[in-house]
Design a binder for these strands. Structure first.
Lengths: 190, 190
DNA sequence: ATCATTTGAGGACATTTGTCCTTTCAGTCC
DNA sequence: GGACTGAAAGGACAAATGTCCTCAAATGAT
């Protein structure tokens, strides 16, 4: 739970008592490699803090291709955010790339925290704001960076992902084909 | 102000009294064609509801090219969201494509509303959530749709923009060159 | 250990997109 | 009206990327 508290404190100060009072709302779950945390088409009922492990968010596009939207690594949040907020079917699946440990809280319980605690109202807004920043950064990356630059960014920011994900997963994340990713790697190895 | 109240009510119920009490925090501003609402590098101190008009959000990328990030049309919000939330220099500029009327609220005043009203805490979180959905949709579009599909989406969702923005603006919005946009239009005209 | 299956690298050619350029047309200043 | 200016369309060629393929290495199953 310590890492979770540290994470929350990057958002807003929270007293020990307030954290202790709310921590029963979280529970620990373990995923084995290839287990799903969220499945496309089902409602995502939880938001998770990643204690340990790596996950991949992906969806099936209208050409029936499986596209990686992001990789989620430890000490950050993961959820199908829109599905979680609106409690509507998820457009994405989230799957463990390796054995993974999560701290999860149900949508209902989080709403109760929002309703009973001003600190949690604040945390909720700031989570939304942070999710926005992450998505904005992602969009900026999509817009500005070539596939090669995106690859180098991944190499720099989440290097462990390059060993845990397949070439196919990484290629769809970069928005190119496997062939082009192969050319990119060739060029970088120069 | 009516349109603003209608907009807020799509987020959360607000009593007439609560709306009346807070509406003095908003003020009306008029922009002439080509005036800036936000300038890249300056802190964005306001969030705006667009009563009338059209704006373009853009930035200068690391190749010194001006890239259109989005077009903002009436009855929606516009701001340099990250700059507004964190009160840090904006990465984007927002410029009127035609004469435009905005209802704006200062960051400070919005914080006061958050601190004094649970309804506004709620609105604030839901604005953040909505900004997230918009950004997510944008990212999904960037990821999934070809330039041609994006053009058709723009034609469908914000057709007025095609007359108000230049070919250059639209091309950078689609992520292609003018030459390719010209080819896309040729193909659609078939 | 062996065989079958999956995964990644990279060759050959086709297609798409970008770069650079010219032409056309509409607006505007004298 | 005629000359100038700037924006948009589109031609010709170059560069980047995709498609389809083969081969070799890694992984799994028996």
């Amino acid at each position: 739970m310590n890492k979770l508290k540290e994470f929350i404190e990057t958002l807003t100060p929270i007293s020990d008592k307030e954290f202790e009072d709310s921590k029963d709302n979280f529970s620990k779950i373990h995923l084995k490699k290839e287990d799903f945390f969220v499945e496309q088409g089902k409602i995502c009922r939880q938001i998770a803090f990643i204690n340990n492990g790596t996950l991949r968010t992906f969806y099936i596009n209208n050409k029936a291709e499986e596209i990686t939207a992001c990789f989620c690594t430890k000490n950050s949040l993961t959820t199908s955010y829109k599905s979680f907020i609106l409690q509507e079917p998820s457009l994405v699946s989230i799957q463990a790339l390796e054995d993974t440990e999560l701290l999860v809280i149900d949508h209902e319980k989080l709403q109760q925290l929002y309703n009973t605690s001003r600190a949690w109202q604040n945390i909720g807004r700031q989570i939304a704001e942070r999710e926005y920043f992450v998505m904005e950064q992602y969009a900026a990356t999509l817009n500005n960076e070539s596939a090669k630059e995106k690859y180098l960014r991944l190499l720099n920011e989440q290097p462990e992902v390059l060993h845990k994900a397949s070439v196919e997963d990484i290629a769809t994340y970069l928005g190119v084909t496997r062939r082009t990713l192969s050319r990119i790697r060739q060029e970088i190895a120069k």
